[in-house]
Design a protein around this nucleic acid. Structure first.
Lengths: 138, 138
DNA sequence: CCGTATCCGATTTGATACTG
DNA sequence: CAGTATCAAATCGGATACGG
């Protein structure tokens, strides 16, 4: 292969067919995961639950700005994919505990790698944006 | 720290403030990057450009299903963040070459890690979804 | 060849009110 | 406490037509 970044083998390293059938990385699991990473609350919730289990209102108070609707929706989505476990304790009043599943924990690692990249290269990105804004202004 | 996944140090490993000020991981660079990963075409474009530089219509033909509008918009966004370089060759007819910048190349690695995770755990996710769909049906 | 402009439907997110 | 229901706003993405 020509000039790829490191040489790390990866599913992304294989030469892609042309044209890409709009499936190869679309209906395949990669897009699902990428989409989840991109949505507004999923990763933040996973990070909080990675620290320790939380109850519903605890998450609601912890996040500042999330609506009940989105909190519930996001948790349900994570639960459906097996990343988060929801445990209902039949007490009065009811208490519901959310936690990461083992599968969810394994996702934290690549997520952290991506977050670390973002922090590490923040300055470069901001400089590029400044240059681009300057170039646009004329 | 209690029961985190591996022990890898990461920006995500630090205990978060409660409540999260809606900035800590929101206006900070992490959300920008996560959003980009989640959008429909950015990563696919970066993968193609990671193989080799491409011209505009070459990308358009390569991707199958992308509109000119989104191709242009996505490339411009990647360019603004310094991930992709756009070189115009003043020939007739004009030719424009897109390629990854060095910064863009460094992003391929965490992206690949995430994609590999998705492929590796595809079965588990699908099983979780089946179970969840079953549980919902009653 | 390499785009831009315009319009429109689909999806995402939030605000608000209400409930077992 | 832990949600649901409903409505509205914002954003995303695609189709089509046109331009340098």
């Amino acid at each position: 292969m020509s000039g790829t970044h490191t040489g790390v083998p990866s599913v992304l390293e294989h030469e892609l067919p042309h044209p890409v059938p709009a499936d190869e990385l679309a209906a395949c699991p990669v897009e699902d995961v990428f989409r989840r990473v991109g949505d507004k609350w999923s990763t933040l919730l996973m990070i909080l639950l990675g620290n320790r289990p939380h109850r519903y209102n605890e998450l609601h108070r912890a996040i500042d700005g999330i609506s009940q609707r989105m909190l519930t929706r996001t948790l349900r989505g994570l639960e459906a994919d097996g990343l988060v476990r929801r445990e209902v304790h039949p007490t009065v009043p009811p208490s519901v505990e959310y936690s990461l599943t083992p599968l969810g924990r394994t996702l934290l690692e690549p997520l952290s790698a991506l977050a670390d990249w973002a922090v590490l290269h923040e300055a470069e990105i901001n400089e590029a944006r400044s240059r681009h804004a300057d170039a646009q202004r004329r």
